[in-house]
């Protein structure tokens, strides 16, 4: 199988690491070769973060480069736009419809772009998920990233059971039920 390239982008603290690890385990359990590349350290302090997951028969490079991503999972609108040029022309964008102002916007040195969702839709196949509202409605706002993951599931080639199994094995035991509920909500969108 040709290598599938997935990027997860967001703001430090939004759970890109957990998401990439779920995707990595999923691919490994399905018998693929997998590589994940993460960002630790300084970039995690509220900065723009990106992690890469690549799986297939044999994976060499651990990163996804410009124009190579099959799926872009974005936890924040501006971050989806920042990395849009990494997505293949026929690739898919799954974006959490949330706005978080970078410090340059807060201090008035820059503006938060208008119409991001429209731009994304005009350039790539795009799915918009209001994950925070969904996560809040099930009483678990922190699981918003799993809602987004659920929404992205149909863009990848795993069965629903495979997803559920890996989520169970990855998230903290106390949060399994809420995370499965969050996944289900995203999956059914």
């Amino acid at each position: 199988m040709a290598t599938t390239n997935i990027m997860i982008v967001g703001v430090g603290g939004q759970g890109t690491l957990l998401t990439s690890r779920i995707l990595g385990k999923l691919a490994l359990a399905a018998g693929y070769d997998v590589k994940i590349s993460e960002v630790h350290g300084m970039s995690q302090r509220g900065g723009s973060v990106v992690t890469y997951v690549r799986y297939g028969d044999k994976v060499a490079e651990p990163i996804v480069e410009e124009g190579q991503a099959d799926v872009l999972i974005a936890f924040e609108r501006l971050e989806a736009l920042r990395y849009l040029h990494f997505v293949k022309k026929d690739g898919t964008v799954i974006v959490n419809d949330q706005r978080m102002d970078p410090i340059s916007v807060v201090t008035g040195q820059a503006t938060y772009p208008e119409g991001i969702i429209e731009t994304l839709k005009s350039r790539r196949k795009t799915m918009v998920v209001d994950a925070m509202s969904i996560a809040k409605s099930i009483g678990s706002p922190k699981s918003f990233n799993v809602v987004v993951l659920g929404a992205s599931a149909k863009s990848m080639d795993y069965t629903k059971d495979q997803w559920i199994e890996v989520i169970k094995n990855t998230v903290p035991p106390k949060t399994i039920d809420k995370n499965l509920e969050a996944f289900e909500a995203g999956y059914n969108l």
Binding site: G67, L78, L84, H85, I103, A110
Partner: peptide
Amino acid sequence: KLDIEEAEKVAPRPPILC
């Protein structure tokens, strides 16, 4: 010659104090 779109010029998001 790589067919890569130009990156959007969006506000940078550097790391900050929490």
